[in-house]
């Protein structure tokens, strides 16, 4: 019984940790994606400039 109680407690803790992590990484994901989009857009802009001057 005691073990099951402990396991349950651990499960709940894991669940909480998971949700916390998920919450905490939202801003990181957004900033990574914004930076990534900037890099991709500027890469293609430069490539288009190069092709137009061919």
């Amino acid at each position: 019984m005691a073990q099951t109680g402990l396991e349950q407690k651990k499960l709940v803790q894991d669940q909480q940790e998971k949700t916390e992590q998920q919450m905490a990484l939202k801003g990181t994901l957004a900033s990574v994606m914004i930076l990534g989009a900037l890099i991709v857009i500027s890469w293609f802009a430069m490539f288009a400039l190069f092709m137009s001057r061919q």
Binding site: Q22, L29, V32, V40
Partner: peptide, 15 residues
């Protein structure tokens, strides 16, 4: 690996 980490690693790799 966190789900979000997988997303941005795939995005970086694909780029």
């Amino acid at each position: 690996l966190h789900k979000y980490e997988r997303i941005w690693l795939m995005f970086g790799g694909a780029s």
